[in-house]
Design a protein around this nucleic acid. Structure first.
Length: 422
DNA sequence: TCTGGGGTCCTAGGACCC
DNA sequence: TCTGGGGTCCTAGGACCC
């Protein structure tokens, strides 16, 4: 049986999450900001209508925010993650084969459902998700993932379809694809858009009918797959079980410029702790660690960026091991005299924590250290992230990003539960 | 003054080996 | 002037996604 996909995408996800928890926001323009309250990462329809673009820095739209009384939020990933999980669990009612593609999107296999009225089935999904979670979603249905993305886009753009668009109902898509700009295709970014337009390929229809050899030469194997998908030939399978992670990272901008080694060390130690926590929660250990620092590219100051990659003698997820390694790496790249804006820590060469090879020269009592980490993680899970942390991460944390407009962790912390007064 | 973060996959080119 | 060839592995960087 040929494949059949539904792409379910939450509308303006972060903005919708804020609204679910705070109905006063119904009908109002909402924007959600990135870390450090830097850029716009989500907008309600009302905010889009005011011309606020995705990714713009907050300081550039301050006057609109003020004049149009836009509701502004720092991002609250604890809340979004929790609501995302509820949406995904709801979708699992509708297909046994589901790929959670991102925090706000999932592909469902509809193979075996061909004889149903798929549009009606989609509408039922939408109603259920809305009723159980409060989150509005849009659904696109087609025989390849790339076409399902396009169908989803149509469902969002043309409200008369009621939030569900089934491309199967249109065996001849010529007119539909002709109206979609090539840059709106999944997998076509700014660089390929420029390249394609230079060669007279401006619409999705033109891309679909482009020459395979030319595509192979200029866009690689990924480009060929993409074009075949547009033709209705499925090349990207549903990936129901997520592949094991290959890297884990934590990189943050500072709340203000940092120029001392001591403060940079605090930040790096703190980011490393976060990476170590993620490693443990995934049951992984790392064999390679990369630490990086950079200055602010938007400023006229002298620029510097560098990174150091360190190999760990034994795969580890112990915070102390990783901090020691990261700080060692940092000292080899840190240069005095620059205003640093950002630092990052990434681990790769990930192995299962259960089968870490022990080193002949490794005299640490790993079992004991692992028990310490388990206790630390449990305390932080119970009392909130950061309750217990390594002194290397610093106490004052003057470099830390500011998130002044964070909404409460309504659904994951008892002390931040929403209150209802009657 | 203020400009995000966390990932994946692919490719080209160098190192190395026989 | 001419200076092997083919394979593998690794890494850095590009492009893209949400």
């Amino acid at each position: 049986m040929p494949p059949l996909f539904a792409l379910v995408d939450c509308n303006n996800f972060y903005a919708s999450c804020e609204r679910v928890m705070n109905p006063r926001l119904e009908g109002k323009p909402i924007v959600v900001l990135s870390n450090n309250d830097g850029c716009v990462v989500a907008r309600s329809n009302e905010a889009k209508a005011l011309g606020i673009k995705m990714g713009v820095p907050e300081f550039q739209i301050r006057s609109i925010i003020h004049e149009r009384q836009v509701e502004v939020f720092s991002s609250n990933y604890t809340l979004y993650g929790d609501l995302s999980q509820r949406v995904m669990e709801t979708l699992e009612q509708f297909s046994l084969n589901i790929e959670i593609y991102s925090i706000d999107e999932a592909f469902l296999s509809l193979e075996g459902f061909e004889r149903r009225d798929l549009t009606e089935y989609g509408k039922q999904m939408r109603r259920t998700v809305k009723q159980w979670t409060g989150i509005p979603v849009s659904i696109g249905i087609a025989e390849t993932k790339t076409l399902a993305k396009i169908a989803n886009r149509i469902s969002k753009k043309h409200l008369e379809h009621g939030g569900v668009f089934d491309l199967n109902a249109y065996p001849d898509r010529t007119d539909l694809l002709d109206k979609i700009d090539v840059e709106d295709v999944w997998g076509i970014g700014p660089n390929h858009t420029r390249l394609l337009k230079q060669h007279g390929i401006a619409t999705t229809l033109q891309l679909r009918d482009a020459d395979d050899h030319w595509i192979r030469k200029h866009m690689g194997i990924t480009g060929v797959r993409l074009v075949h998908e547009l033709r209705g030939q499925s090349c990207l399978e549903l990936e129901a079980c997520p592949a094991p992670k290959q890297s884990i990272a934590c990189a943050r901008s500072f709340g203000r410029p940092v120029w001392t080694l001591a403060e940079t060390e605090e930040a790096v130690a703190s980011y490393t702790s976060r990476v170590a926590e993620k490693l443990r929660s995934e049951g992984l250990a790392a064999t390679v660690l990369t630490v990086s620092v950079m200055t602010n590219a938007f400023r006229d100051d002298p620029q510097y960026r560098n990174s150091a990659t360190c190999t760990l003698p034994v795969g580890t997820n112990l915070t102390a091991d990783l901090i020691r390694t990261a700080l060692g790496g940092l000292r080899t790249i840190f240069r005095e005299g620059y205003h640093y804006k950002k630092a990052g820590v990434m681990v790769t060469g990930l192995v299962s924590a259960a089968q870490v090879q022990s080193d002949l020269f490794d005299h640490q009592d790993r079992a004991r250290s692992t028990r310490l980490m388990t206790a630390l993680d449990a305390i932080n899970a119970r009392w909130g992230a950061g309750t217990l942390h390594y002194a290397a991460g610093g106490i004052k944390k003057g470099w830390k990003a500011q998130c002044r407009r964070r909404s409460p962790a309504y659904t994951t912390r008892w002390d931040e539960l929403p209150m209802v007064f009657s």
